[in-house]
Write a protein that binds this DNA or RNA. Sequence first.
DNA 1: CCCCACGATACCACA
DNA 2: TATCGTGGGG
Length: 867
Amino acid sequence: MSNGYDDIPFFDEEPPPRKPAGPATGGIAARAMAARDQARTPDYLSGLNPEQREAVETTEGPVLVLAGAGTGKTRVLTTRIAHILATGRAFPSQILAVTFTNKAAREMKERIGMLVGGAVEGMPWLGTFHSIGVKILRRHAELVGLRSDFTILDTDDVIRLIKQLIQAEGLDDKRWPARQFAAMIDTWKNKGLDPAQIPEGDARAFANGKGRELYAAYQNRLKTLNACDFGDLLLHPIRMFRANPDVLRDYHQRFKYILVDEYQDTNTAQYMWLRLLAQRSAASRNSPSSGLSATFSPSNGEKDGAAGASPPLAPPAGRGSRGAGGEGPAPTVNICCVGDDDQSIYGWRGAEVDNILRFEKDFPGAKVIKLERNYRSTEHILGAAGHLIAHNEGRLGKTLFTDRTEPDDEKVIVHAAWDSEEEARAVGEEIERLQRGDADGKKHALNGMAILVRASFQMREFEDRFVTLGLNYRVVGGPRFYERLEIRDAMAYFRLVCQPADDLAFERIVNTPKRGLGDTTVRALHDYARARDIPMLAAAAEMVETDELKPKARKALFDVIQYFRRWSERLETTPHTELAEQILDESGYTDMWKNDKSAEAPGRLENLKELVRSMEAFESMRGFLEHVSLVMDTEQNEDMDAVSIMTLHSAKGLEFDTVFLPGWEEGLFPHQRALDEGGRSGLEEERRLAYVGITRAKRRCHIWFVSNRRIHGLWQSTMPSRFLDELPQSHVEVAEAETSYGGYGRGGYGQSRFDRADPFANSYSTPGWKRAQQNKSDATRDNWGTRSGHAVERIGYGESGPRGRTIEGELVAKSTSSEPSKFKLGDRVFHVKFGNGNVSAIEGNKLTIDFDRAGQKRVLDGFVERV
DNA sequence: CCCCACGATACCACA
DNA sequence: TATCGTGGGG
């Protein structure tokens, strides 16, 4: 029975147990091997410290590893897996390893690959909660009322869908924003709640008390659409496991070892999911009335619950038809969770730090191992971070230490800047200084530097700056490729070809490009489809046979349907990248952008090309769609030397020689909304975020705050973040006031702001700090003639303001490369941001280009290509 | 049915 | 400031 997903490895594709020592956990051979391996330390264990080694070698039973930042957490996880494999305790396919982000999963795969070489291919169950959830769900979709080719909706789709539902209920979609309800549903799903289970108060809070009905209606609609949202990727498997103990049992037998990364970030649903998979012996060890059963309250789903009442939680273990040697149930759960309560930064996504704090109760007899020896950062960085995080209450309490101290280690440096533009400029200068090696004579690679921002809108200013500087940068998880308009449109075409029932995709593109199929026609189709309970594409096919539509619309619709028929037929025969091109061309979609005269159009076409190119890496169009729905980031070319720009959230788990932390101002960091909505715990989470930021740094950490920031186009004066006051003086140094490059920026404002008495004296006594404070307050007063702390300043100068970009050229660093450029004068080139233009000057690898629309810019040649 | 202009609104983080 | 949704005119 082919459902198009047969490539997913599953039980019946067990690798033949050919290795001499099979995965028999309790087998004599295995024990012998283990003993042998203990006697003769394998290479991969030799570099570990005692705690790490214990975490790796305690393979049996529940283990909690409390791993502080930079203590070798990933190393422990990967080595542990390698160890399990190398000692023959399990096949790769018998290890379940869950991470939070795709990045983390990718990295783990790579590192395991380096340790064991090759076996990673056979680790089908290493991935994010969501990707593993999908994999499970595809196999058993019918058990929750879906077909295995269900589509996964992203946030945008969900919001549009909910909006339709709100309107269908006859509610005012202004008063009850779909976005808000989507967020509520998300919250419920994070807690593992079905419509029937949500708190009465929640249900009443939305849509005149119709919250519960709306949620149920939403779930029904998803089912008819044969679709899932992100939350369902976890909830459906949970429901499915509960309703089908036999299926669950199969998974129990399969997964001999479970590993969980970033355990502090698991939410309730993920916790339930994990518990189900790990419960086999936990349940037999815990009495049924233990706290667990309360957590796992029976799920009375809407319709899918009809299959039967909730099954008992603890199906008898063992007795499997397969399994090694037919021993009884494993005596312990081999689950290993790794986490750090100080790095819990996903409370807003429903993460329950409690999960990690409760681990020992959940798994009696668990071994808890603390990793506190830090291998990443200097003493100053650890000192600053540790002092900051100590302001939080309710920690498990770890203190990181290092003994690798160099005399010339830099303290953490705090800088003040006038506004965000100056901030970007100064950071850019600092980066170039490091790159040139001015400070210490060593040239530093851009790859070792990162700018970590609180909110993604901060990125733009840095991007703009770096583009004019000709400084290579890469935005990690930035403006998501797949969220762009043109990409989403194209994807909608692909989705509809693969999944003709995808009404959301249909509605998105019936009239894109314009075909004269406006609201009226779409509504008619919608009604027709609803009345007969068929997908809209099918409804369209029927309707063109009738005379219900105006001739013009009918003709247009007829063409559309013909196209989709043709494309669907080619699905099995034409290579998918080719088909993708055909779809985009024949539909008129590429032409639409070719005819578009706006500045973005060339960039969009380029993105479409990139989209098709990126499909090459996949087997089929379906495989590609699946990837996209789960992995919203595009892989960037790693070999380019570039500064990374990303949010603090996506920086977790990474490390850089030099880290820049801009935007440490009240309201932005800690973020106002985190404070408003989260209160004290919100503040603590922000503080943990700051902690994460600082601990990303290996050698240098520069923190910035500005006096003025533009929010919604208005200039607002800001206060330095309270976190700055929570840094220890002993490890922190305040930079002397930055005079901007070549007097730039000083001219317009005068130097007087540096000459005032300090009205905001605080605990800091260094002159630099005072200066920074003065800078902040006086600058505000000087420029706007008002006191700082004043509400919003309406300034609103634009391009023609006091600081036009007139001397841009002078700010560009001299070329360091002597290689002749591959471009020549007059070349016609294309740049993603600026569009097309002509090369008017070349200086090493830096080009001056007259862009058709954006004017003259200096750009690094890596950013453009000849057209 | 399409286009444009206008005003409201937004910018928190992720899979 | 940029984007989005709406309402009126073509």
